[in-house]
Design a protein around this nucleic acid. Structure first.
Lengths: 109, 109
DNA sequence: TCGACGTGCAACGCGATGGTTGCACGTCCC
DNA sequence: GGGACGTGCAACCATCGCGTTGCACGTCGA
């Protein structure tokens, strides 16, 4: 909770962050920023900042273990955002359905 | 089709654009940028650019009628993005479920 | 036809964002 | 304890996105 859908969408708008999320899905135990940055053409700090953005959006969680920080996915926020999207879609469909019925029952003047 | 989910999420990340989408839902016949900008504290051009972004993301459609341009919602892309989100969520859940089972059946070495 | 209205495009300023590098702190291993 | 490793933070620069204004073009109505 307490996280705006806007932050989630902003986090998901970046291709690098989406890639990080996909990769993190393959590491359910969690992965460090250094490990994730290894095959990428960007620096460790950049990946770290991306992970911070994802964390602020509630999409990943960070847990420090010893001298390394493990990041792991957190499905709840993603589910919430998906629900937001489907809700908006449903409202649209309902409006369009009403419009269609109105048109059939007599009136687009 | 041919629209990236990144564009959709980037479009949805802005509060003004989300508000425009909500408002457009109340005008199934379509609305002009000037009309939409009236109650807002931003200029008509700003609203127009927001609508262009939404159009590029495939979330709204523009149709010129005479000297005015009507914008209307287009639910398909929104449905697609919602599906993308739920799919990613499902994959995560599946991974986490597997992890849980693995842990129970004996092994986190 | 001519004035009025509405739109689209270009140029500009400003703040946010993404990327880099360098350095200080905490933690593991010998 | 001491060196090595990994992380977090700050400063700096380039780029992008948002908002503004001004102007030219197309379209409606008298």
């Amino acid at each position: 909770m307490s996280v705006d859908v806007g932050q989630v969408f902003a986090a998901l708008s970046d291709p690098h962050r989406r890639h990080l999320l996909e990769t993190l899905g393959d590491h359910p135990h969690g992965a460090t920023a250094t490990t994730l940055a290894l095959p990428l053409p960007v620096s460790r700090q950049a990946v770290d900042r991306h992970l911070r953005v994802l964390e602020r959006a509630g999409l990943v969680s960070s847990a420090r273990r010893g001298r390394e920080t493990l990041f792991a996915v957190r499905p709840e926020q993603l589910t919430r955002s998906a629900a937001w999207l489907t809700d908006l879609g449903k409202r649209w469909d309902r409006r369009l359905e009403r419009l269609k019925n109105t048109a059939e029952s007599g009136g687009t003047p």
